[in-house]
Design a protein around this nucleic acid. Structure first.
Lengths: 198, 198
DNA sequence: GATCTAAACGGACTCTACCCCGCTTCTTCT
DNA sequence: AGAAGAAGCGGGGTAGAGTCCGTTTAGATC
């Protein structure tokens, strides 16, 4: 591969992206997701609108980038944290733990997660598959006997993330999404998994 | 209840709504969902933009209304058509049939269905619950023993509709969404149900 | 048929995402 | 250090969603 140098990102670009992300976080904390506009963000960061789009491509892109940071931390727990979420525990227990943790994560981030969904384009190929691959892997280890583990993984991912993203995410800012939703969903996830794995 | 007369909808309003729906159908057929704009629709129908919003509330509302018509026909099949979709068959068989039919329906309507999802507001409380209630009902009849049938119904609905709406709906107009997606999803739905009901 | 009133209408207005492209700044090579 | 070239920047411009409110009209009543 004749790639002398990939020509890394320019230093000012890195600085500006960082600054935009930071500013976005502030604005979200202060006034909520809905009040973050491209013009507003650019102005407050002291940059041009064009710059914002160059870095994130779209409004949704900003929220995706914001999520990514936390998502990475979450995945770390899953990949190398302590059991039952991390490796070491029984695969069924890990599935249950994964679901509960994921629900809590999405509930925590629901406003941003929802805003990161781009209307028009489907979900980015790489995003659901983190969950999906993990679920797929654990199903395999759990020796679940099914004609298509891939199909099952797709459905379970949807069962897990769908209710939050699609049906449940209430208002943008108000309404702290009910106190026990995560118990409800967590419990029924556990029941579902245990029934399937049985 | 002192309601002398509910004061039905005015005739011109009915006519105009019909006309808007019809025009929208034409525009979708000709240029695709993405090219339907509120201004364009209003102009082509020979009406004002305000009128369009009065009738449908938002862009998504138009597509919701469009779907509703077909949806009603679909529900009719489910409620009183021939088995195994309609009543008469074993509840597990009906669940399987329902899933397959629903997948086909959503695949058929995916462009409009996707456009009918309102960004910002969550799904209208009444929409997913048609599927959900039906699934809930069949689960009850199938004597599935689970701590929370409601929870299961939520998840199964998401498992059924989520992949289509969230992960799978490719580009707006192009890409006839793969030839055998419905087999794949249908089969794995069947496997899932049979495993749960077992 | 004339009158009245609430429903329906229309289109100008606002707000925001996203595009475009000439200008500036960094980086690297000599 | 200077120059060339690419990457990054800025902000004016466009298009489309949704709002507002003054005007029009269906249809009920007398």
């Amino acid at each position: 591969m004749p790639f002398g140098k990939p020509r890394g990102e320019r230093a000012d670009a890195v600085r500006n992206r960082e600054r935009l992300l930071e500013t976005a976080r502030e604005m979200i904390a202060e006034r909520g997701v809905a009040k973050v506009t491209m013009d507003g963000l650019a102005e407050r960061a002291g940059l041009g609108k064009g710059t914002v789009f160059r870095h994130f491509g779209s409004r949704a892109g900003i929220f995706r980038a914001l999520l990514d940071a936390d998502e990475r931390r979450f995945q770390e727990q899953v990949l190398s944290g302590p059991p039952p979420l991390g490796p070491g525990a029984d695969p069924v227990a890990r599935l249950v733990a994964y679901g509960r943790a994921r629900i809590a994560f999405l509930l925590d981030h629901h406003a941003v997660a929802r805003a990161s969904l781009d209307r028009g384009r489907p979900a980015p190929a790489g995003d659901p598959s983190v969950s999906q691959l993990h679920i797929r892997m654990l199903l395999g280890r759990a020796q679940v006997r099914m004609p298509s583990l891939n199909g099952l993984a797709v459905q379970l991912t949807a069962a897990l993330e769908g209710p939050l993203l699609l049906y449940l995410s209430m208002s943008e800012t108000s309404a702290p999404p009910a106190p026990d939703v995560d118990h409800f969903l967590g419990d029924s996830w556990q029941a579902l998994i245990e029934r399937i794995a049985r």
